[in-house]
Each structure stands twice: as C-alpha cells, then as structure tokens.
Simulated assay, not measured.
Amino acid sequence: MTLTVLLAAGHGVFEEYDAPLRAAFAAQGLDAALVTDAAPESVDYIVYAPSSPVQDFAPFTRCRAVLSLWAGVERIVANPTLTQPLARMVDPSLTQGMVEYVTGHVLRYHLGLDRPASKWAPLVPPLAQDRRVGFLGLGELGRACAQALVALGFDVAGWSRSPRAVAGIACHHGADGLRKVLQCSEILVTLLPDTPATANILNAQTLAQLPRGARIINPGRGTLVEDAALLAALDTGQIAAATLDVFRTEPLPAEHPYWAHPSVTVTPHIAAATRPDTASAVIAANIARVQAGQPLLHEVSRSAGY
C-alpha cells in the first residue's frame, strides 16, 4: 500500500523538499506519495513546520507520527489536538552548522578579533586551556558544541536541568550547579529549549553572577534572555559583548535597541538551518523505522516540552 505523507509547511517549502524527500523515500525503499493536500483520514505521516496552516490534528486519525522540520517544537508540543507521536528534527547538518557558528564566535571573543587596532599595541590572548567557556544546555546541540571546544583545548563547563555526563566537560545541574557554571564562564553559550522553566534564565540576577566583562552567545531561544536586563548589563560593562541569533520577535524589529548597541552582534536566525537533503534523509529513515515496528527516533516528551 502506498503511504500518504502530507508536507504541512508554509509557502515555498514544498519546492525545497519535494525532490529531496522523494529521493530519500526511494533510498529507504518506501512506497510513499508526498502531497500538500489530502483527506485527513487518508494521511499516514505528517512532515510539519510551524508555518503550516494545519493546527488541528484531530481529523488525522490514521496518522502514525508527526515529523518536525524544526529542532524546536515549542510551537506545536502543547497543541491539545496533537495526540500522535511527535519527532523533533535532529539533522547532522543542523548540528554541524551550530557547531561551526558557536566555535566561530567563541574564537572571535577568545582572540579579541573585535578589538579595534588604532596603534601597534600587541595584546596576546590566553591559550584556549586558560579560557573558561560555559554552556547552558547539554542536549544534542549543546553537547556537540561543547565537545568541539574541548577538542580545541578550552576549559568547558556545562549546566543542564537534569544530570548529564559528558566526557571532558564539568557537568552541573540544579540551582547550585547553575550558579557554579555562571561564576566560571568568561564566555557563556545558551542552548536550552524554550520551556516555562528556561524563560528569562538570563536575567539581572543571573547576569550579575557572571565574571565582569563576560561575553554571551545565544543561538538557542530568544526567550532565554531578558532583553532589558541584558541591555542594562551591557551598558554597565558587566557583560562586555553579546552575539544573538534568536529573538522573541522575528524578524527583529527595526527599532529594537539591539540593532544600534555597539556591543551587540545580531545574526538573523542562521546558526542552525535545516538543510533539505540531510533533513529529508532523517525523516525518511524515521518513517521506515515506524513502518518496521521500531521506535520513533527523537520522540518529543510532552511533559518536558522537548
């Protein structure tokens, strides 16, 4: 029987994913028809992006899984009509993109590449082993980025809400663990999911716990940072600089103070883009697993929200 796979996404997504998904289905030996419209009761799987007009999943009574094109699922996980299993996107290219983004900006701050050169005044940076980098979030992306920095010799500590063990990284959890990581982080990277427990985790109180002159890199979620508190900390010098890739409102409004602040680098949500070829392979492999009676990979915990 031919599977019906509904690509439920916004404008232009079908054109990007049509050929890669069909090729990935063929590579997995799946007899699957990719469609953008179908009777809900005929749909076997939904490939989903939050820009989709599909918001009521109740009519999709035959659907065996919803497969997100995005790593973040905060805009769908709480949907009360979603009773089907939900898989988040864990794409090797997405992970590699995030590793490159984080490594690049950590090295930029570590080496002082933003420092203006108005005269010949050599300032030798410390070696990586003497630079302390902290991570808030040790999930798939956080671990990959932290381990990349460990491989370069950085002194890396990480915090997660539940206990983790990652080779080469001083891992902490809980309120006391958060304080320890903040206090030792000359460069702090935030890669937590967007949940009620992580909202505004960088606020006036926690920013004050960082070493004076710390740098912040946030490619995680815009809601992790209390914007007014960060701007105030930048103005006092408590925080020397911030590189921000994600925001509460996107695109970032033209009048937002981040655009004009001399110590803020704004990037337009580019740290970890989903790439059609590799994402399609992930989706097809997951569908093949379910068809073979195997567990769905990267299934989202509804209670945890990720």
Rank of each mutant, 00 (worst) to 15 (best):
F135I: 01
G137T: 06
P211V: 08
C145K: 09
A117R: 14
L178S: 09
V189C: 12
Y101H: 11
P196Q: 11
L207Y: 10
P163Y: 06
V181S: 02
L192D: 03
P196W: 09
L207W: 04
A151C: 05
A117T: 12
I169T: 00
H172C: 09
K180T: 14
A170I: 04
R215H: 15
I217K: 01
G220H: 07
S160T: 12
L111R: 15
I201N: 12
R212W: 00
G220C: 06
V225W: 01
V124A: 14
C145R: 07
N200V: 00
L188R: 03
D176Y: 00
T198S: 15
V166A: 11
T190C: 15
P122Y: 08
A167F: 02
W159H: 14
R164C: 09
L231M: 04
S160W: 09
W159V: 03
G174D: 08
L178F: 10
G112L: 04
A204V: 04
V156I: 14
L127G: 15
R164K: 15
L127C: 09
A214P: 02
K180A: 15
T190E: 02
P196L: 09
L224W: 00
V99F: 03
E140K: 07
L149T: 07
A228W: 00
L149H: 10
P211M: 12
L149S: 13
A121S: 10
Q129K: 06
G139P: 04
A165R: 13
A157V: 08
R108P: 00
L178A: 08
I187R: 10
Y101G: 05
H172N: 09
R221E: 10
V106H: 08
I187A: 08
I217L: 03
L152A: 12
G142H: 06
I217R: 03
G112I: 10
P193N: 07
G158S: 05
Y109W: 08
L113D: 03
Q147H: 04
K119R: 15
G97P: 04
P116I: 06
W159N: 09
D194S: 15
R143I: 05
D176F: 01
D155V: 08
V166I: 13
L149A: 11
A170D: 15
E226Q: 14
P126D: 13
G134E: 00
E226G: 03
I216Q: 06
V181F: 04
R131V: 13
D114Q: 07
V106D: 09
S160D: 14
Y109N: 02
R221D: 08
N218M: 00
R212P: 06
T198W: 13
K119G: 13
T195H: 07
C184Y: 04
G139Q: 07
V156Y: 11
V150P: 01
S118Q: 12
L210W: 05
